[in-house]
């Protein structure tokens, strides 16, 4: 039935519309199905899979970043509290040592004062004893001098 007529009559013209039209339409529809299964579907699958992969990774990275930021803030508050704690401990220790120092100083002062007082009293008693002895010796000496003067007469 396929009687190709390559040497057909040269009728026609620019606007010669014939069975070429529906056949070309069928050909384009067939081409649509062929290209869909050969080109649009496979390429679309690959591209969309990659787009999904990329967007998933971006979301994951964003989640991780926010987690890191949260942890960072957490650490910062911990650091802050640790720092205030340390400050408190240091100031407490300073107060304590200050107090101890003052106590020790007071104790030492008292002791020193007591021993100074004792020494002063001792010195005083010795001084008076020595003065008593001296005055006694002076009395003895004067008596001796008087006796001798009287005896010579």
């Amino acid at each position: 039935m396929l009687a190709f007529n390559f040497f057909g009559a040269t009728e026609g013209g620019l606007f010669d519309i014939n069975a070429t039209l529906p056949l070309m339409a069928i050909q384009v529809v067939a081409l649509t199905y062929i290209l869909n299964s050969l080109f649009f579907k496979p390429v679309g699958n690959v591209v969309e899979k990659r787009e999904k992969f990329v967007s998933n990774n971006i979301i994951e990275a964003k989640n991780k970043l926010s987690e890191v930021k949260k942890l960072e803030a957490d650490l910062l508050t911990q650091l802050q509290s640790a720092r205030t704690e340390a400050q408190k401990i240091v100031s407490e220790a300073e107060n304590e040592s200050d107090k101890l120092y003052k106590e020790a100083l007071e104790l030492a002062n008292n002791e020193a004062n007591a021993s100074k007082e004792k020494a002063r009293l001792e010195i005083e008693s010795q001084t008076s004893a020595a003065r008593d002895q001296l005055s006694k010796q002076a009395d003895d000496l004067s008596e001796l001098i008087v006796n001798r003067l009287i005896l010579e007469k």
Partner: peptide, 22 residues
């Protein structure tokens, strides 16, 4: 211009050159 390579299949006529190039 406006000349075609006609293919005759049964009693329908086609523009052969269009199909060949396509």
């Amino acid at each position: 211009v406006g000349q075609h390579l006609y293919w005759q299949i049964g009693n329908i006529r086609l523009h052969g050159q269009v199909f060949l190039t396509s």
